[in-house]
Nucleic acid binder design. Structure first.
Lengths: 198, 198
DNA sequence: ACTCCTTTATGATGTATGTCATAAAACATT
DNA sequence: AATGTTTTATGACATACATCATAAAGGAGT
């Protein structure tokens, strides 16, 4: 996250996206830096037969879609608002100018990318194992520590639909439903009012 | 890759690792920055029943294992030499000093991480589809453009064993062997003297 | 030429997850 | 209250990939 005061020195624009609205599309060139003020955004892919894979979900104060700004490559995934969202945008040139003029920001960009790479590494190893229980537990634990999920007296509430859990782990909804039920029986998590707690 | 001349100003040490030798282990704290002079290194995970997943293979002039240097986290995977290798190391403090004193280097670190994140995103979407043909073709095409595989008159030579292909895509050797044979029949690649060309 | 080890190969069988069908529960909208 | 939509749920069946067993081909070292 870059300080808003700093972004304002580089021609920031505040945009509003409705739920389901597309922010950018896979295979397009990166033109802007995006930082979420409120709402939530998912980055996803669809394979040939329409199946979705969610690369990640981003919330307030997080940025997304930066990597292609530094490469001569297009976006590897789409970005779509999962809720009505308010997003700050600055153009690629202004963003790169900001970075070069503020070395401290580049360190924080490194940290953000390092963090995200860490998530990808953990999930990649997990997804490759073909073990639905592991995949889901890993997703939950990582989401709890990486995202700001709240803890109440039942534990951490996993604020994701079964469908989203599936799309984040490469599993089908039915498999997710069945797996979290066996995980509940094993005492790994709780399901209260259809909500998952860990 | 950071210029060797620059590394030398920050107490670089040149180390030799034999094939199969471990450079660092999963869950350990990051203490050094590593850059390969010659040889090759793989980063991998083993799951509970000993199955391997290769996060990536790195070659001459590439660095690896930087992300945890910027986070208060341990390595998400092991690093192991796949060939006898010569590697430059500098300590974490010296590395962070180098970065802060050389803003241009931090930009190149960003580019490296962005690049790697791009690879992870592409492969994650692919692996989640559960389609062995797609996974392997994606691996080959990405390896060709990202790594420096050479092209000869048969096409690009994929310099990976069947086992490595499997470990990089989360597939078993037998599945890799069978899949690349059907891909050959479909004309997607060539197999000459057991070597894969694309 | 011989031995050892790695890599590639192939067939038989098992199984976890996917697929398809169907529906109840929860929630939103009118 | 009535209606429509999303989310969760459950069963029957199919299938791609894993697993296991076995072996041939190739390379490295003596």
């Amino acid at each position: 996250m870059i300080e808003i005061a700093l972004l304002e020195k580089y021609n920031v624009v505040r945009k509003h996206y409705k739920k389901l609205e597309i922010i950018f599309e896979k295979d397009h060139l990166a033109t802007h830096y995006y930082q979420i003020v409120s709402g939530a955004v998912k980055m996803n892919n669809y394979n040939d037969d329409g199946r979705e894979f969610i690369q990640g979900i981003f919330y307030a104060n997080q940025s997304f879609g930066e990597p292609p700004l530094f490469l001569d490559r297009t976006y590897p995934a789409n970005a779509e608002a999962v809720e009505d969202s308010e997003i700050l945008c600055i153009s690629k040139v202004n963003f790169l100018k900001l970075i070069s003029e503020n070395p401290k920001v580049s360190i924080s960009i490194i940290e953000i990318l390092a963090h995200r790479l860490h998530y990808k590494s953990v999930m990649a190893a997990e997804i490759s194992t073909h073990d639905s229980e592991h995949r889901l537990l890993q997703l939950f634990d990582y989401s709890i520590s990486y995202l700001n999920f709240k803890k109440d007296n039942n534990g951490y509430a996993i604020d994701l639909t079964r469908q989203q859990m599936g799309d984040l782990t490469g599993l089908r909804v039915e498999t997710v439903i069945r797996t979290i039920k066996t995980l509940e029986k094993k005492g790994e998590l709780k399901i209260i009012n259809r909500k998952v707690y860990r």
